[in-house]
Design a protein around this nucleic acid. Structure first.
Lengths: 149, 149
DNA sequence: GTAGGTGCAAAGTGTTTGCATATAC
DNA sequence: GTATATGCAAACACTTTGCACCTAC
């Protein structure tokens, strides 16, 4: 379930409510829906590809413009998982992190309660207000390890 | 002190020893020295700018090519700290992580012993061999918070 | 009606590559 | 001498922007 500050996306498209002067356009609904359905890590290109299937006239700049918007209003999070471009996912209430296989590119999500404590410690120690947290591990999964001996 | 698998850089340039067939060129020495002296987070452009001051003929592609080499042989680590490009730093024996101010761009490093435990847990749970670890926090430092009220 | 969003094509970044020349070994 | 690095310019991939048209409010 998504329900954040300025624009919120509910279960079905038509329930989306703009709360900030951001206009509700068919493109925005479509993009949000695809991100939601894609659950997980999609880059702009993939998002564009899928969007085009439903609305062949949609443009890549609209994708990028709206990703930036969604990011800004906190609906979507941007991740750099080490391949030269970004992945996008809906912001979820529970923090979760990423484990990436450098062999096959597979991305595994995991949760990590310790992070919360760490975050507080670091915030306090540096007098920061921390708004973003990310833990990133990379390595090789068991099947990729087998392949390379 | 830096002393890793295939090529090692010691205190002064001339002590550098290639251990892997990688040739020791003046450009490589220069780049490594600048990364070392720059201590911290320099992007390729900044590295290039400084290198040009000492060797006006050095080219940006040499910078990139060698950054890739250094990364591959484990001398240097690449970090994406969220501004559309990478930062590079010498690999150090102690794991450290990054706290970035979204207001002024300042990067603070911190260490975090808990991460080691986390890493082991995640590796075990997913049957991974984890080779890279990164914890990234972003937010606002105290002076940027004041500015924006 | 108007501020704001879209599509398109063009421009920007950051990064990589092909090739002839130069250099470490 | 030969394999490997370099410099240069050209190509790339990802992302942003300018502008005329369109649409949500």
């Amino acid at each position: 379930m998504v329900c954040i500050s300025k624009m919120s996306a509910a279960k079905t498209d038509n329930e989306v409510t703009p709360l900030h002067g951001e206009r509700v356009t068919s493109q925005r609904l479509l993009i949000l829906r695809i991100i939601r359905e894609g659950e997980g890590h999609m880059d702009a290109e993939e998002l564009y590809r899928r969007a085009t299937e439903e609305d062949p006239r949609i443009s890549l700049s609209t994708i990028y413009r709206n990703l930036r918007l969604f990011k800004r209003i906190g609906l979507v999070e941007e991740r750099y998982l080490g391949e030269g471009h970004h992945h996008y996912e809906l912001r979820r209430p529970t923090q979760h992190h990423h484990l990436v296989c450098l062999g096959c590119g597979r991305v595994i999500e995991f949760e990590c309660p310790q992070t919360e404590q760490m975050r507080e410690d670091v915030a306090k120690a540096n007098d920061f207000e921390i708004t973003d947290t990310e833990v990133y591990f990379a390595g090789y999964c068991s099947s990729c390890r087998k392949k390379r001996g």
